[in-house]
Every structure is written in structure tokens, then in C-alpha cells.
Simulated scan of single mutants.
Amino acid sequence: MHEAKHTNPLHGITLKAMVEHLAERYGWDGLGARISIRCFTHDPSVSSSLKFLRKTPWARAKVESLYLHSAAHPRKTDTAPPDDAPGPG
């Protein structure tokens, strides 16, 4: 059982952190398009989403899956330096 914590990629990541990351990355509209549930499509908020996801295992599984996918495939803009960063030379 101790080894399971080390192999679980979601270990230590809260549901709130996942929802905030996904909402920031995709926006509420994009998140609702990827996971069609009312807490993302109708008057979305982190608070209302957490209430629903904590009671709905299938929806939470979809959020966890999308989070893992987004973490494994960062956008190029996520790692690019800011526009005002000094360039080489």
C-alpha cells in the first residue's frame, strides 16, 4: 500500500488545484466543451464545481483524466519565456 502512493500521479494534488489548473488552461467554456457537465457550462465557479465533483465519482474521474492529460502535454506557451524577457544578444 505504501508503494501505491508513489505510483499514483495524482498523489498530493487536490481536486481544487486540478479544477483551477483546468479552468486557467482551457477557460470555463473550453472545459465545458471537453467535459460536458453543468458545473462547467452553466454559471461555473470553482466552488460549485467542487461540490458537484466531490459527490459524483464519474465526473471526478473525467476531471482527473483531463488533468493528467494536460499535465503530460504542457502547452508551448506554458514554458515559453515572457515577451518582455531579454533575448539572446
Rank of each mutant, 00 (worst) to 15 (best):
T14K: 05
H2F: 00
A80Q: 12
A85G: 04
F40P: 00
H69K: 10
S70H: 04
Y26F: 13
I37S: 04
F52C: 15
G87R: 13
G87H: 15
G30V: 02
G12V: 07
T41Q: 03
L31M: 06
H73P: 01
I37A: 08
I35F: 05
E20N: 12
P82E: 07
P88F: 12
F52E: 10
T79V: 15
S36G: 11
A17L: 08
G27M: 09
R75P: 06
P82G: 03
S47K: 03
G32Y: 06
P88R: 09
H73G: 04
H42M: 00
R34G: 14
D29A: 14
S48V: 14
S65E: 15
H73D: 06
H69M: 07
H21R: 07
L66Q: 04
P81Y: 00
L68A: 14
P88L: 14
P86M: 14
E20V: 14
V19M: 08
S65T: 12
A71T: 06
G27C: 01
M1I: 05
S47G: 14
D83T: 08
P82V: 02
M1E: 01
T14A: 15
P74Y: 13
D84C: 10
G87F: 13
E20H: 09
H42D: 11
K76V: 09
P44S: 10
I13C: 03
C39M: 12
S47H: 14
K5A: 13
P57L: 02
V19Q: 05
H11S: 13
L53C: 02
K62G: 04
P57Y: 00
G32V: 05
A72P: 00
A33C: 11
P86W: 11
D83N: 11
H11W: 14
L22K: 02
D83Q: 10
V63R: 03
M1Q: 09
R60V: 01
T41S: 08
W58G: 05
P82T: 04
H11A: 05
P57A: 15
M1H: 05
Y67M: 02
T79L: 15
R54V: 08
T14E: 06
S48F: 08
S45H: 02
H69I: 11
D83S: 12
P9I: 00
P82K: 00
P57W: 03
P74E: 10
P86L: 11
S47F: 12
D29E: 15
S47C: 13
A71I: 11
A80H: 11
